[in-house]
């Protein structure tokens, strides 16, 4: 992990309140990043914003030395990040946390389940899985049509289902409705999204091994401040989301 200044190559809106930023990052740093890891971003200089914002890695382009992040404008900090322009630089802690341990797993067919702003880290994961010739099925859930992004990206890799809660696009309902309706065959699942969705996914897929990625308000982002914790399954201890996670085995934590 290191502190680095990254110049914005381009920044654009890709869905409602949803920004995609490509950042120029040194190749040797990019090489170390695993899918599921995040960068911890300074909002700006000065003292108004004292906390960084944790944002998942959505993609890496080694050749062009680009790191892609996607974030949703949620509060004052992300609103300021959204108005940055190409050519400006952002201060990053990179890379943070533990990613999806795909190198250690024997996977034939993976089910990726993303909800809202939980979708981006699954894209880099999907690409890395495809590179290893693992078949990928993606299941992306959004609130409404205006929120949908990255469908074509995932379709280029494998079968992709999109759901919206209001039915304005794709399946009407939530991701677990698709799991129930479609007879999906897979041996591992990987999920990232709101806690309510992760709980439903955990409950629906108890018989499958899986990994989930959690989010929480963070302080330091490196494991020193104990702000972002989640109880272990037995409730006897806490895991640090920024350092032990954000990716956990589905049965490792109590959400």
């Amino acid at each position: 992990m290191k502190v680095c200044e990254a110049v914005i190559d381009d920044i654009k809106q890709i869905a409602r309140d949803t920004m995609q930023v490509n950042l120029k990052v040194e190749a040797n740093v990019l090489q170390t990043i695993k899918p599921g890891q995040f960068v911890h971003i300074q909002v700006n200089n000065g003292t108004e914003h004292m906390l960084r914002r944790p944002i998942s890695v959505a993609n890496i382009d080694q050749e062009r030395q680009l790191l892609t992040i996607v974030f949703k404008v949620f509060g004052q900090g992300t609103a300021k990040l959204a108005v940055y322009q190409a050519g400006q630089s952002i201060n990053l802690l990179i890379p943070c946390g533990q990613g999806y341990p795909i190198e250690e797993l024997q996977i034939k067919k993976a089910l990726l389940i993303g909800g809202g702003i939980g979708v981006p880290p699954l894209y880099y994961l999907a690409r890395q899985l495809a590179k290893k010739n693992i078949e990928v099925i993606s299941l992306l859930g959004f609130q409404t049509k205006a929120d949908v992004f990255y469908q074509q990206n995932f379709e280029a890799i494998g079968q992709c289902f999109v759901t919206t809660i209001d039915g304005s696009y794709g399946y009407k309902g939530v991701v677990t409705d698709v799991i129930k309706q479609e007879n999906l065959l897979f041996d591992y699942y990987f999920s990232c999204g709101p806690t309510a969705m992760l709980r439903a996914v955990q409950a629906e897929l108890t018989n499958y091994p899986g990994y989930i990625s959690l989010e929480e308000r963070m302080g330091c982002g490196i494991g020193a401040c104990y702000a972002c914790v989640v109880p272990s399954k037995d409730q006897a201890t806490y895991k640090k989301i920024c350092q032990d996670g954000p990716v956990f085995q589905a049965n490792e934590v109590s959400i």
């Binding site: 914003h49 004292m50 906390l51 900090g77 929480e216 308000r217 963070m218 302080g219 401040c225 104990y226 702000a227 972002c228 914790v229 989640v230 201890t237 806490y238």
Partner: peptide, 10 residues
């Protein structure tokens, strides 16, 4: 073990 989350706010 400390408190429940969220534990910090900017």
């Amino acid at each position: 073990l400390g408190n429940a989350t969220p534990r910090v706010a900017e």
